[in-house]
């Protein structure tokens, strides 16, 4: 239950971000393993280089337990305001953004302290 709710909040914030661009198509994939989770989301909206840089900065920020354990709980709750990817970045083990054919693909990896995201196979 705890994992499910947490995932829903992450997916909510991520979807909020992608849907802001009014895409025709959004594809969301969730892959759960015993020691980690991989969320992948793709859209078909053009994104500028600056936007990709902002997303990368938000997802690959420094780990801040004092922020994630407290303010991180706001993630996925306010869906009327612009999405806050920096909240997403606080919660994830690793995140990256790459350009797809028409839009972007955001990959998010989550796991415990023992989880090594570099060994995780992306589908």
């Amino acid at each position: 239950m705890k994992r499910k709710e947490f995932l829903l909040q992450l997916i909510g914030e991520l979807s909020n971000y992608l849907l802001e661009g009014m895409p025709r198509r959004v594809v969301l994939s969730v892959h759960q393993e015993a020691d980690g989770i991989h969320i992948s989301a793709m859209d078909d909206t053009p994104h500028s280089d600056q936007e990709v840089e902002v997303i990368t900065h938000a997802l690959q920020g420094e780990k801040r337990p004092e922020l994630s354990g407290y303010y991180g709980h706001m993630i996925g709750h306010d869906l009327f305001s612009p999405a806050r990817l920096e909240l997403l970045g606080l919660q994830v083990k690793h995140g990256e953004v790459n350009r797809s054919e028409n839009g972007i693909r955001i990959d998010i990896l989550l796991g415990g302290e023992q989880f090594d995201s570099s060994n995780f196979e992306l589908p």
């Binding site: 337990p65 004092e66 922020l67 994630s68 354990g69 407290y70």
Partner: peptide, 10 residues
């Protein structure tokens, strides 16, 4: 079951 660092601001 959290680390104290997660609640330090609280």
């Amino acid at each position: 079951g959290k680390t104290f660092s997660e609640y330090i601001l609280i």
